[in-house]
Structure formats: structure tokens, C-alpha cells
Design a protein around this nucleic acid. Structure first.
Lengths: 232, 232
DNA sequence: GACAACACGAACAAAAACGCGCAATCACGA
DNA sequence: TCGTGATTGCGCGTTTTTGTTCGTGTTGTC
């Protein structure tokens, strides 16, 4: 029948906890910490990875925060370094205990990843990956918008999403953009995205627009607004 | 059914207390502490584990955290094999091109993981992890419910979520449950969860209830419905 | 592109833990 | 006092876990 006693021993449980809290731990470190041979740790890691509880690497293991891995591995992220830097910089502008919208886009996801040091934020987002990234934070209050998912980037768009976004007012709106025209006009490809961005801008006291240099060379056709709309 | 005299001797009671306070205690330590042979401790541990009062391991025992206290990460690994098997089995009942609700719970997540071979499903869910799992599928149409995220398990609950769920009718409702009473009554801990489950049941042509054997030994207090509510 | 250092898996051996059967002990009432 | 049944301790063969060795594979550097 089904085995009643699950085959996970205390050490393996500790390993999961350790890896999840540290991000990356080497086999050597774990062997030392638990006072067992490296080979034993390897066996544990192998077993846990087989169960899908963490990810194996040469020399150690990392947690299996599903979405982050999907984000990095399966999706092409251009200018990762620049986006991380932008996200980090933007995050430093957000004080603890603030409320904020986070819109769709890979740059806003980088921003969300940089919120690790913040506390007690209240976040409203229509970005599935952002929601996943911060979903484990017990001190955050995270609201996700309703609606249909767009597979390619985890965006939640449409009338229902706008309705959700429209029922909140926040101190910050963090949005990305597809393109910026020479005159400062903000541009996007998709009407739904544009409407969501507008809703966020309308309901935020301040707006942080995250964009790297590539946005200046693109010229989508939809108009989100002018830079003037972002002024405080 | 409930046996009137369960024989738990003082030593066994002490063992439970000790394990609960220490986290992990080796059989050797306990044998020394109670001044009995290791064999006797083994018997005690075996008996107590059988009663579900603690968890047995090679060389010792750990406490059996109560359901509410089990963190999501740990819950995820409970009965992983059984949950995968259940999920796989349930997935085989779903034809391509169906529409379905997927509720919160680790078993429903296992189910979602088993949908890899399906095509063109339309899914409505209030489970962030489920949404993430299937978000990359370009042939699926995925709708996520609105509302506040519960960090411990990625559940989206509340009035907004119910409103989203209530605006769809599907062929299948896939739900988990916290406990099943002997008379078939479905039980849950949280009022919000119960309301979501009821909404899903109401709006589904057929309901698939995913539960492993551990659900029969738990007795939460909220009533979701009877097994009769699930009949086709 | 080659080499050194490190990490890995497989196989084997040692150690620890386990279960079972049986005998000794204890509790308790006839 | 004796018998009965439950509990405990011990011996021993079996299973599980852990450590070690060694040939192979991977990584990083020059």
C-alpha cells in the first residue's frame, strides 16, 4: 500500500530549510554543518532534487522557487544586468510599509526581486511572476488582479484586472514600458496593457517608470501618456 | 469506533512531551533518560507513530506538527508520492479542451503538474502556484481569481475571489479538502476556503475531490458539504 | 585546447538501527 | 500460592544508513 512513514529524515528537512533561507549552500558546508560525509549530503541532495524540493548544482544546491527559475531559465531576459540595476535602484526609493502597484514587464520583475530587504509592503499587481516572487513573504500584503493570464509573460489583463486595479490607491506605481518616443510620449504595443498602465498611473500618488536604454529605440504605436503624467 | 481505553503509559506520555519540546530526540537518548532498553523505546515510538502522535525516523523521532502549524513548504513534502499518484489519476479523467476550476491545496497542485500532456484546457483557479505551473502553456486559457494572497500557501481568497469564481461555469471542479468525517462530511479549517470550495462546487458540472488517506484522520470544524453534493 | 583541481556516481564495507522470538519480570486477582 | 497476561530486556539475523575508495566527468585557468 502507501507507505505511512515518509522517507524524509530530520537532516534532509534541515537541508531544505537551510537552502531555502541561504539561497545557495555548498555540499561541503552542509557536510560540515551536519557533521556527516560529503557523500551523505550528496545522497540527500540527490533524493530531495528527485522529489522536486530543491535544485541540484555542481557543488551544492539552490532552492526551487519555481517561478524565479522559470523566469531565468525558460524566458529570454535581455539586459538582465541593467534591469537588475534599475530594479535595485528603484527599490531603494521605496520605504518600508509603503503601498505600491507593480505592473507587468521583466524590468518590474527585477524590481520585485530587489524587494527582499523591505518589510510590510502592500503590493497590488497584475503580474503573475511578481506575485509569485513575493508570495512567500508573510509580512507583505499582496493583492493579485483578476483575469486571463497571458502565457508569454504572466500578465493579467482585461476588464476584470482593471477593475481590481481601480479599487486601490497606492503611494507608488511601478511600471515598465515598451517604448519612449523622443518627445517623451510613453508607448506600448497592446491596448490592454495600455489601459492597465493608465489605471495604475491614475491611482498612484507617484509613478516610477522603469526603462532601460533599449526602450528609446523602439516605437510601438499605442500611447500610454506623456512623461508629464508621471509628475508628482 | 473510538476505543474507550487507549493504553498510553506515563513513559509514552513523557516521550511525546519530550519530543514536542526538543524537536528531535534519538532513541538512545530517550533510553538513557528513562532508564530502559532502547528496544522498549522503539516499541513506544512505533506505537505512538501508529497513533499519529509523532513521526518516526531512523534513530529517533520528531514531533508531528499539527495541521495548522505545518508550513507550506513542509506540507508540500507530506505524502508526495501519494499526492502525485492522485494528481496523475485525476488528470487522466480530464479530456482535452475541457474547462475546469482548480482550488487551493498541495494535492491540487500535484494535479496541475500532471496536466502536462493535456491540450487546450480552460482553467480558472484561485491558487497562485497552480497558475504559475500552467502559466507558460500557450494553448491553455488560464483565469486567475482576484484578491489577497495568503503567503503560506499561495491561496487567493475573499469576496473578490469568489466573485471571479462565480462568473464562470465549468465542466470540472477539482478541489482538495482538509478533512473528511466518517459520515462523508467534507471539512475545512477556514471559512474563506469553505466559501471558495462551495462556489466551485456550485459552478461545476462534475467535481473531483482529491484527498489522500491522511484526510480521514483530521477533523477540522468547518463544514463544506457532504459527499452527496459531489454526485454528478 | 590542455591541464589541474575539484566534484560526481558506483561499489563495497562498516556501523548503526531495526524487527522478531523468547525468556525473565512484574502486576494482579483467584 | 499460583496462574495469567502484559511489559520489558536480550540475542541474533536482517535492513538501513553512512563512510571510503576509486574511476569518470565537470569546471576553471592558463
Amino acid at each position: 500500500m502507501s507507505n505511512p512513514t515518509i522517507r524524509i529524515n530530520p537532516r534532509q528537512e534541515q537541508i531544505i530549510r537551510l537552502v531555502r533561507s541561504q539561497g545557495y549552500v555548498s555540499n561541503e558546508d552542509m557536510a560540515q554543518q551536519f557533521d556527516v560525509a560529503v557523500q551523505t549530503i550528496r545522497r540527500d541532495i540527490g533524493f530531495l532534487a528527485e522529489q522536486g524540493l530543491l535544485t541540484r548544482h555542481h557543488g551544492g544546491a539552490t532552492p526551487n522557487s519555481t517561478i524565479e527559475n522559470i523566469a531565468y531559465n525558460e524566458r529570454q531576459i535581455l539586459n538582465l544586468k541593467a534591469k537588475d540595476a534599475i530594479g535595485h535602484c528603484a527599490a531603494s526609493l521605496i520605504p518600508d510599509r509603503s503601498s505600491l502597484f507593480i505592473n507587468i514587464g521583466t524590468t518590474t520583475e527585477a524590481f520585485a526581486r530587489s524587494l527582499g530587504g523591505h518589510r510590510d509592503l502592500r503590493v497590488v499587481t497584475n503580474n503573475l511572476h511578481v506575485a509569485s516572487l513575493i508570495s512567500g513573504r508573510p509580512d507583505f500584503r499582496t493583492v493579485i488582479a483578476a483575469g486571463e493570464l497571458r502565457p508569454k509573460d504572466g500578465a493579467i489583463l482585461g476588464a476584470a484586472a482593471i477593475e481590481t486595479l481601480d479599487s486601490f490607491r497606492t503611494e507608488f506605481g511601478v511600471i515598465g514600458i515598451s517604448g519612449i518616443a523622443d518627445d517623451g510620449t510613453l508607448l506600448d504595443f497592446d491596448l490592454n496593457e495600455i489601459q492597465c498602465a493608465r489605471t495604475i498611473i491614475r491611482n498612484s500618488r507617484r509613478v516610477l517608470l522603469l526603462a532601460d536604454h533599449t526602450k528609446f529605440s523602439r516605437q510601438p504605436m499605442g500611447r500610454v501618456g506623456g512623461l508629464a503624467d508621471l509628475m508628482i
